[in-house]
Simulated scan of single mutants.
Amino acid sequence: MIKKLCCIALLMSVTAVAQEPLTAVPLYTEAELIELIKKNQHLKRVKDDDCQLVQDIEARAETMELPSYQFLYGDMLAYAVCVDRNVELGLYFMRKAAEQGLSSALEQLGRYYDVGQLVQADKALAVIYLREAASQGNLAAQLRLVNLFNSGHGSPRDYEDAYRWLFHSAVADKKLHQQIQNALARLAEKMPESVVRRARLPM
């Protein structure tokens, strides 16, 4: 009798769980995903959502060709987040996002070519990607680009723009502010005073 009651109770419990509605994870809007990417929280978000959106993310990257989703899917592939690792395909999608002008993709590829992460180091390619991201106001790209120029890479024809973009950036962090100040001082040494003055004029 006790065994029979236990079986009935277990059956009722399983039935109750089965009847609970599953909560669907809403797909990220473009604006929301871009903010997650800027904060470098996009991969964590996919993990936190228990990898439920992989097929939707893949469809928006491959079929709809949305740059933010191409970047997300590329990162997922490169770092084996909710999918099997495929660095080559991951880089393909990152490049597709960069071709559409996504600042974060341009900055990341520029950084990868600068340090040789996932790809062979290529300072010339790094400058190309970083310059495009920097022109869109990407602070990380602006600082890295100036540092590359200070290290002897790139063309002096680009110094003025790089100086202007970084000089007019707004930074609250004191340590980062000092890094920017030092980088600008070094770049100014490579430029005529008249060009530095012009670069400092309001944009």
Rank of each mutant, 00 (worst) to 15 (best):
F167V: 04
E107R: 12
A98C: 06
C7L: 15
P67R: 09
Y112N: 14
V196M: 09
A24D: 10
A172D: 15
E160K: 09
V119Y: 12
H153T: 05
Y129S: 00
N182Q: 08
Q181F: 12
P67H: 11
Y79V: 07
A18Y: 08
E193W: 00
N182A: 05
R60E: 14
A133Q: 00
R144W: 00
R45W: 05
R186S: 13
R198N: 14
L66A: 10
V119L: 08
D114M: 03
L102T: 06
L201Q: 15
I57F: 00
D50Q: 13
E107C: 08
D173M: 02
G74A: 01
V25D: 11
S13R: 10
R200G: 15
L89N: 12
Q52W: 02
I128M: 11
L102M: 11
A80D: 07
D122E: 08
Y112F: 13
Q108E: 10
Q100D: 13
D173I: 05
R131K: 15
K96A: 15
G154S: 10
Q179I: 02
D48H: 02
L5I: 14
E35F: 00
L27Y: 07
A16W: 10
G152K: 01
L33D: 12
P21N: 08
N182W: 00
R197F: 09
D56L: 04
D75H: 06
E30F: 09
V115I: 15
L143H: 02
T29C: 10
R111N: 14
A18G: 00
I37T: 07
V196W: 04
H153F: 14
E193G: 00
Q100R: 08
L109C: 07
E193M: 05
A133I: 11
Q142G: 05
D49T: 05
G116C: 08
M191K: 01
W165I: 13
L11F: 02
A18D: 06
E62A: 09
I8K: 10
Q41N: 13
G110F: 06
Y79F: 13
L148Q: 05
E189N: 13
Q108P: 00
E20G: 02
P202A: 02
L72T: 06
T23C: 06
L102W: 08
Q55T: 14
